[in-house]
Design a protein around this nucleic acid. Structure first.
Lengths: 135, 135
DNA sequence: CATACTGTAACAATAGTTATTACAGTACAA
DNA sequence: TTGTACTGTAATAACTATTGTTACAGTATG
């Protein structure tokens, strides 16, 4: 992590909100983001598992939001693409060193606290709020 | 980014604070973190550029903090190892798409705001606070 | 001048991320 | 009932980022 998945996911959700009267195809979405359509379908697979998106298979199929954009908080989107907390990566310190032995516990505590603050901030914004900026 | 550099840097600074009466060698530090000593020297090169650490070359040389641990805020440490804001990675969306054209601007705004919140939280904690947990 | 360090560069190895290809499955519509 | 246009998903390749390794010049010390 820090990959571009959050940006991709938010782009997808924003498009679906802005064009909510239509079913959008992975091809159309991929063209806007400028990535491969299989990447879009994969990311949508994840977003669908989280109920943010519904899909319709077959000819004329495509995607719509799975719930009102005003009910999708960016914190949820973030968590759906990144289970590891921010800063999450630690080392494998030497367990024979008194400091090394303890540090990961303390780091985890710190990371968790910072992560909560961060998510709280993202939780104040919904896909609807974000999409409004485009109108 | 999200590499382990923040964890490494904080580990180094914590060791220096806890053993502040001694000069620590890169070898000693590397042993505690369980990484190669050249990696430690490299990371310290960066931390020294930010005045968090002072070094002494030559035989009997090593490292000490460059300022009191109570004056080193974790937000500064974070920024010294990661210039990109959290979430920073975007895509290269299609400039011919009206949404794609605008999205990076809006994303950047969002990322910056979330980043500030995050750094504000880390700014409340100093290396001294963190090191105290080990006593 | 031998020794024990740091500083740094060049490069190798590993891991993480994204792109590509392919194709089975599904719905629609003639 | 068959062609068409989609989704779903797996396999895998290409790329990029990160970390590790080796090497050695430079520096302070005794």
């Amino acid at each position: 992590m820090n990959n571009g998945r959050f940006a991709t996911a938010l782009h997808i959700l924003t498009l679906l909100e802005i064009k909510k009267e239509e079913l959008l195809s992975s091809e159309f979405i991929a063209n806007s983001i400028n990535v491969n359509s299989a990447v879009v379908r994969k990311e949508i697979g994840n977003l669908r598992a989280h109920k943010f998106i519904e899909s319709k298979e077959g000819k004329g199929g495509g995607y719509t939001l799975g719930k009102p954009a005003s009910q999708i908080h960016l914190s949820e989107v973030y968590k759906s693409v990144n289970e590891t907390p921010l800063l999450g990566r630690s080392n494998d310190p030497n367990p024979d060193c008194p400091i090394g032995k303890q540090i990961n516990g303390h780091l985890k505590e710190l990371f968790t606290a910072a992560d909560e603050t961060f998510l709280k901030q993202l939780g104040k914004i919904t896909v609807r709020d974000f999409a409004k900026k485009f109108k």
